[in-house]
Amino acid sequence: MFDVSAFRAGFPSLASGIAHFDNPGGTQTPAVVGEAIARTLTGPLSQRGSATTSQRNAEEAVAGFRSAVADLMNGVPGGVVHGRSATALTYDVSRTLARAWSPGDEVVVCELDHDSNVRPWIQAAERAGATVRWLRLVPATGELDLSSLDVITERTRLVALTAASNLLGTRPPVATVAERAHQVGALVHVDAVHHAAHAAPDVTAMGADLVVCSPYKFFGPHCGALIADPALLDTLRPDKLLPSSDAVPERFELGTLPYELLAGVTAAVDLIASLGTGSSRRERLVSAAASIADHELRLRVRIEEGLAALGDRLTLHSRAVDRTSTLFVTLRDREPADVHEELAKQDVLVPAGTFYAHETFRALGLPVDSGLRIGLAAYSDDADVDRLLDGLAGALA
């Protein structure tokens, strides 16, 4: 059974007393991650090489990062690329792929996605003269509308899809979509930013060609990672400086890497793995993810029951059968920003905002900024849930 009290003890920031339900926007950082960053940054460190300890430390930070992310995502270290953010990586990849697109080609994006997996592809398609098609969601359930898969045709060059909606929590059937895309020779780019915070993703099982994630969503520092088959990456030619390495994955990394952040990502992955069992780090990560998911599901059910008790004063829009522990609600008589402020005065952090989910709001027929997002993390506990439900009941009374 997952020991949430022991896990919480590793997060100094939780001593603030804040009940964090803003976790889909970024989790709190454990001490072991901060220590790994400080140790790497202040220990002997220089440009990568093998002649001195400082050079070897840099090499080990990079190798450790690639290995850790590969284990988390079930990829291979040689296909792991560091980036400033998932958004930046998606823009980089979209610009590179779009060089081969032309009028008559089509790109498919999805209404469930964060704008970082929508706008870069739309903009790249517009520059290439390609057409954009849409995978739709079903507003009543928040599920992917599988009938909209008909937009994937022999003209499709790429399908961009989230593995989990950062607004509704919906996990669409990525593997089903990927199979359809591959039948017509299209690539599949998956945004696993929200998904990776609540699972140990499997890029192979998803059928994804390109996947991005953000370590700061799962206790790590602020950066992004791209995971792909090295053979695919070797076919892509991004803009780069002449003296910089043309080897994959370095070909896609601009400038000196932030070795300290890479070490922080490795520490975050190792922390998650320490919660599981198994002979390999991948096995421990899968085991830990299952244990955390059970813990989060129990708390999510408690919250859903509490929300139901508030009657028609609010509407829960997170209804998909397969979804994460993230809930989006709209309010009948109160402005979301006002309720956010009232809860914040009680140190209960439930954000209101766009959450960069513009297309999802539009598909639901809701104005942007129209609700509250409640997001759990592994360190969320029953006391947090009690405070949330009490605060909401008071604010909506």
Rank of each mutant, 00 (worst) to 15 (best):
F2W: 01
R8L: 00
S13Q: 08
S16P: 05
H20Y: 09
N23P: 00
P24W: 12
V32K: 07
R48K: 15
T53F: 02
S54F: 01
A58M: 02
E60Y: 10
A61R: 05
A68C: 13
H82N: 09
G83A: 02
A86M: 08
Y91Q: 11
Y91R: 14
D92W: 05
V108D: 07
V109G: 09
V109S: 08
C110T: 14
E111H: 15
P120G: 02
Q123G: 05
R127P: 00
R127Q: 08
T131D: 13
P139M: 09
T141A: 02
V151R: 10
A163M: 04
V174P: 05
A175N: 02
R180E: 07
V184I: 05
G185T: 06
V190Q: 01
M206G: 11
G207I: 03
L210V: 14
V211E: 10
C213A: 02
C213M: 09
F218V: 09
G224I: 07
A228S: 15
A231S: 11
L236R: 11
A247S: 11
V265R: 07
A273F: 05
A273L: 03
R282S: 15
R284L: 06
V286W: 10
A289G: 10
I292R: 15
L310H: 10
T315N: 03
R319F: 00
T330I: 03
R332L: 10
D333W: 04
E335S: 12
V348W: 09
G353C: 14
E359T: 14
E359R: 12
F361D: 09
F361K: 00
P367S: 13
D369H: 15
G371W: 14
Y379T: 15
R387D: 14
G394P: 03
L396V: 02
